[in-house]
Amino acid sequence: MSDTITLLPDHVIGFPPLEHALKQPDGLLAIGGNLEVDTLVMAYRQGIFPWFNEGDPILWWSPSPRMVLKPGELYLSRSLRKLLRKSIYQITCDHDFPAVIAACARIRRDSEGTWITDKMIDAYTALHDAGHAHSIEVWKEGRLVGGLYGVAQGRIFFAESMFSRESNTSKIAMTALSEQLLAWQFELIDCQVYSDHLDSLGARLMPRSIFADYLGRYCSQAPSCANWKQEWQWNGLQ
């Protein structure tokens, strides 16, 4: 652990070792740099992600321990199982990434601050256009009522944010993602930091060193899907 924070140049050629991250605030590793596609890909593959408020410099984080979920191990309550079997909702993948990230940003601005800034929206939309970021959409009668987005590298998915416009629709999106990633032989869903909500869904804490080992093993392994939108198959609980 280091007591100082690395200042990144505008042209980022590398990040400091994860062990240099601060304990307080937990996981702060570096400041500055850019949000170009190559920089973000390099960061995620090392277990680093950007998080900062409007008007702040870009802040890069790698907290320890890390909150993670194994695909297929999401806890489903009896009421959620019942809701999923009613087939009220249609779940799609990569049909409207801009609408999903915009909805997530709106929810965060209303309840948790403004960390999904216009700069972040532009950066993750570029990641999506490059094939690295993906969205799960939950529809009801043609209306987008829930969803999530995140970043995929090899057989690891880094969940970023979710939203609900109706009760449980973000959980439906997470369920669909978890089950589809299991079918695609993904190894891990990164949920970043602990929350009671994630804990109730079956996510667990993992030491950063073990998490980094997972990334080293699986980020470079090709998943069994080549095109998320075309190969999406999850249609609900049977």
Score class of each variant (00 low, 15 high):
Thr4His: 09
Ser200Val: 03
Glu19Met: 07
Leu177Asn: 06
Ser178Lys: 07
Tyr149Leu: 09
Ala21Met: 07
Glu36Leu: 09
Gly236Pro: 13
Trp61Ser: 01
Tyr89Lys: 00
Ala176Leu: 06
Arg81Trp: 11
Tyr218Asn: 10
Ala30Asn: 05
Ser178Asp: 02
Glu137Asp: 10
Gln180Ala: 03
Arg204Cys: 04
Leu205Val: 01
Ile116Cys: 02
Ala159Val: 01
Asp122Arg: 08
Pro50Asp: 04
Asp213Asn: 13
His134Gln: 00
Leu237Asp: 03
Arg108Ala: 14
Gly14Val: 11
Ser224Tyr: 05
Gly47Asp: 13
Ala126Tyr: 01
Ile107Lys: 15
Gln24Ala: 13
Leu76Met: 11
Ser209Glu: 15
Ala99Met: 13
Met1Ser: 10
Val145Leu: 10
Asp10His: 06
Glu36Arg: 13
Leu198Val: 02
Tyr214Arg: 06
Asp129Cys: 08
Ser200Gly: 06
Gln233Asn: 14
Ala43Val: 12
Leu59Gln: 11
Phe157Val: 00
Met120Val: 15
Ala103Leu: 05
Trp139Cys: 00
Val37Met: 08
Trp115Met: 09
Trp139Ala: 02
Asn235Tyr: 00
Lys119Glu: 15
Thr114Glu: 15
Asn168Thr: 11
Pro207Lys: 01
Cys191Leu: 14
Gly146Leu: 06
Leu35Val: 10
Gln90Met: 03
Glu231Ala: 04
Leu127Arg: 00
Lys86Met: 14
Leu84Asp: 12
Ala133Leu: 06
Leu84Glu: 10
Asp10Gly: 11
Trp60Gln: 10
Leu188Ala: 08
Leu29Tyr: 06
Asn227Phe: 00
Tyr124Gln: 01
Ser220Ala: 14
Ala176Ile: 04
Gly113Thr: 11
Leu22Tyr: 04
Asn235Arg: 12
Ile172Cys: 06
Ser209Trp: 05
Leu8Phe: 10
Leu177Gln: 02
Ser79Asn: 15
Ala105Cys: 05
Trp60Tyr: 02
Gln180Leu: 03
Asp26Met: 12
Leu148Val: 01
Leu40Ala: 05
Arg85Trp: 11
Leu148Met: 12
Glu54Ile: 07
Ala102Val: 01
Ala102Cys: 06
Leu28Phe: 10
Thr169Pro: 09
Ser178Ala: 07
Gln180Asn: 07
Cys104Tyr: 06
Gln238Met: 08
Ser135Gln: 01
Asn227Lys: 04
Gly150Asn: 03
